[in-house]
Simulated assay, not measured.
Amino acid sequence: MNPDEKHAQLVRVPTWMWLDRAMWQPVTETAKVPGLTVTATAIPQRATWVMGDGKTVACEGAGTPYSAKYAADSASPDCGHTYLRSSARQPDEAYTVLVTVFWDVTWHGGGEQGVVPGLQSQAEAPVRVAEAQALVRS
């Protein structure tokens, strides 16, 4: 995330979310027992982020990592969210953000093959969202 989860997000400032590109790759494993070998390949399909404020963001890929080449107030081109309320009234003053990655698994072995769609892996993190107040004086 940008800002990362160690720092507070800011109300009405876009939050960028992305997953490690090294993780967003097909994973292939082979299992062998006497007389049978089965190979399975898991391919990430999409990620769903439950933002803790009642909103859910669906991303078709890993998301775009934030970098300094983007304006600080720019929204992510493919996986972002803007908080509208502070997390101050939440337990531990943080929203719990849950990301679920959906995988399709293809397999073959023993003269058979198939697809197992919709397998999931998840991670969660507390995210503080602060609200900055401005005072205009003339």
Score class of each variant (00 low, 15 high):
Lys69Ala: 13
Arg46Pro: 01
Glu60Asp: 14
Arg85Pro: 06
Cys79Tyr: 01
Ala47Val: 15
Ile43Asn: 14
Val38Gln: 04
Ser67Glu: 10
Lys69Arg: 14
Trp49Phe: 14
Ile43Thr: 15
Thr39Trp: 07
Thr64Ser: 10
Thr39Pro: 09
Thr64Pro: 01
Lys69Pro: 00
Pro44Leu: 06
Gly61Cys: 02
Trp49Cys: 05
Ser67Gly: 13
Ser76Ala: 02
Gly80Arg: 03
Tyr70Trp: 15
Ala71Asn: 09
Lys55Tyr: 11
His81Ile: 08
Ile43His: 13
Cys79Gln: 06
His81Met: 05
Asp78Trp: 00
Met51Trp: 07
Gln45His: 04
Lys32Met: 12
Tyr66Gly: 02
Gln45Trp: 01
Ala42Leu: 03
Leu36Lys: 14
Pro44Asn: 11
Ala62Cys: 05
Ala58Thr: 15
Asp78Tyr: 04
Thr37Phe: 12
Lys32Tyr: 12
Pro77Lys: 06
Ser67Arg: 12
Ser74Val: 00
Tyr83Phe: 13
Thr64Met: 07
Asp73Gln: 09
Thr41Met: 00
Ala68His: 04
Leu84Pro: 04
Lys55His: 13
Thr41Tyr: 00
Cys59Met: 06
Gly52Cys: 04
Thr56Gly: 00
Ala71Pro: 07
Ala75Gly: 10
Tyr83Met: 08
Thr64Leu: 01
Gly52Thr: 09
Ala47Trp: 05
Ala47Cys: 10
Cys79Thr: 05
Tyr83Cys: 03
Thr56Ser: 12
Thr56Pro: 08
Lys55Glu: 11
Gln45Asp: 06
Ile43Trp: 05
Ala71Trp: 08
Leu84Asp: 15
Tyr70Ser: 08
His81Arg: 08
Pro65Ser: 12
Tyr70Gln: 05
Pro44Thr: 06
